[in-house]
Each structure stands twice: as C-alpha cells, then as structure tokens.
C-alpha cells in the first residue's frame, strides 16, 4: 500500500513539474520580480565606437505601471523619466515643458544606450500583451531553462515577438531575445548575475545588445535594491518632477 502511495505521489509530482504551461511559468517569473514597491540604485555602462560612458541612476517603482528614474550622473544634469499608466514622460530641469513619449518613440534609446524607454521602465504584464507558448528546455550558461516564445496580441506592443529563457530552478529569466515583425532579431538581453534579495531572485547585472547597431553594447547593473518601501502614488506625478 505504502509502495503504491509513493508511486502515486511521485507520478503526481512528476506530472506537476512537466505539466506547467507557459502562462504558469511567466506568472511565476513575474511574481518573483514584480513587487508592490521597489527602490534601486545602479548604473548603465554604454560601450560603442566612441568609447565608454557610465550613467548612474536611482529608480522607484510601484506595481506594474508606475516608475520614476532619476539620473544622478553629472552628464545627465538631473534628467528624469516618469512612467504612468500609458505614457512615459522625460523631464529636464532646463526645459519648461515635460516631453511625453509614446508609440514608436518608446523604442528610442535611453541615454544613448541599447536600452529603450520601454525596456527601461519595464516589460510589465507580459500575459496582457503576449500570447505565450512553451517550446521546450535549453541550457543557458549551464542553467537549465524553459524556452518560451511570446507573440504580441496587438500591433501597439513595441516588440511583436520575444523569446524568453526562464531558469527552471529559480524562475528568473536568463536570456531574452526581441524580434521585429519580420522575425529579425532586434535586441538580446543576457543576465550575468542573479541574486536572492529578500527571498526573490532578481537579475542584478545584465548585458543588452541592440542588434541593429554595430559595436555597441550596454551593461545594466543594479547596485542596491529594496522592496516594499513606503511610496505614495502621488510621488509618480508630473508635479513631483520639479
């Protein structure tokens, strides 16, 4: 009897592990990374034919929609990026008007890096924007990963297709490839370091390559991160930018 029960439990567990759908994997990955609130400090290192440029930033996020990034390096002179529900705003202290960014401009480069405004302020709510399918398993840098493909549900989504490799053990993404409508590889994001912060596995160091540019790469490094800090929603407003 004990033997039969053990076999049933093993079969059940085995079935549970290999029976995960792509949606379940994405949900679990996002729950790992999307927190009620977060504060981080980091830097963006851009390498191109003109040399290396380092930009430092502080970032605040609340939920899936709200984020504020303040660039603290000398060159940026107080530039800020605010993301609200549907619009991203870019603030410069010397400008009286705050510039909204939408549509194709979301794919414009941030501070000359391989990151776009859309990349920088988050790829939140993947299941709202994409239909996902599990293609199988693949090892990335020695880590066994789920290989998931995502197709955009609407033409307004910046990247029509993405492929994601999610670490099977920790449910954090290891590699992302973003494609155009014609299946041309536009961007590749590779995770260099993942750390366990307050029980969540967070990519702390990643390399982004814009495949449409030659000899260009960006390294995005988070140096400090805190979750569930107190941030009022009014913090993410145009008035707070000044």
């Amino acid at each position: 009897m004990k033997k039969i029960l053990s076999v049933i439990i093993i079969l059940f567990l085995t079935g549970a592990l290999f029976g995960q759908t792509a949606e379940e994997i994405i949900k679990r990955m996002e729950s790992n990374q999307i927190k009620d609130t977060a504060y981080s400090e980091g830097k963006i290192i851009v390498k191109d034919r003109f040399g290396e440029k380092i930009t430092s930033f502080n970032s605040w996020t609340k939920g899936e929609e709200l984020s504020l990034i303040e660039f603290t390096s000398r060159a940026e002179r107080g530039q800020k990026i605010l993301r609200t529900e549907d619009v991203i705003y870019v603030f410069f202290p010397d400008a009286e008007e705050v510039m909204p960014i939408g549509g194709a401009a979301l794919r414009d480069s941030v501070v000359g890096s391989d990151l776009s405004y859309e990349d920088m302020t988050g790829d939140k709510g993947l299941l709202d924007s994409y239909d996902v399918a599990l293609l199988g398993s693949e090892a990335i840098d020695g880590h066994d990963c789920f290989h998931i493909t995502m197709k955009a549900k609407s033409p307004t989504v910046p990247y029509p297709k993405q492929d994601v490799w999610v670490d099977k053990k920790i449910y954090a993404w290891r590699l992302v490839r973003k494609y155009s409508l014609s299946d041309r590889l536009i961007k590749e994001i590779k995770i260099n370091t993942i750390e366990n912060i307050e029980g969540s596995y967070i990519p702390m160091d990643m390399t982004i390559q814009d495949k449409l540019k030659k000899n260009s790469s960006t390294r995005f490094i988070i140096e400090k991160i805190q979750f569930n800090i107190k941030i009022d929603e009014s913090f993410f407003s145009l008035e707070e930018l000044y």
Binding site: V46, F50, K53, T55, R74, A75, E76, R77, Q79, V90, F92, D94, A95, E96, E97, M99, V111, G112
Partner: peptide
C-alpha cells in the same frame, strides 16, 4: 514666443532647454 530645444551634449547625454 518660447521654443523647446532637444539636442545631445558632448558627454553624449540628451538635453532639453526652453
């Protein structure tokens, strides 16, 4: 009239001014 200008600086940073 006031105009808003966007450009790049020598430090390869975006810059805007009114």
């Amino acid at each position: 009239d006031k105009i808003n200008l966007a450009t790049m600086t020598v430090r390869r940073a975006a810059f805007q001014i009114t």
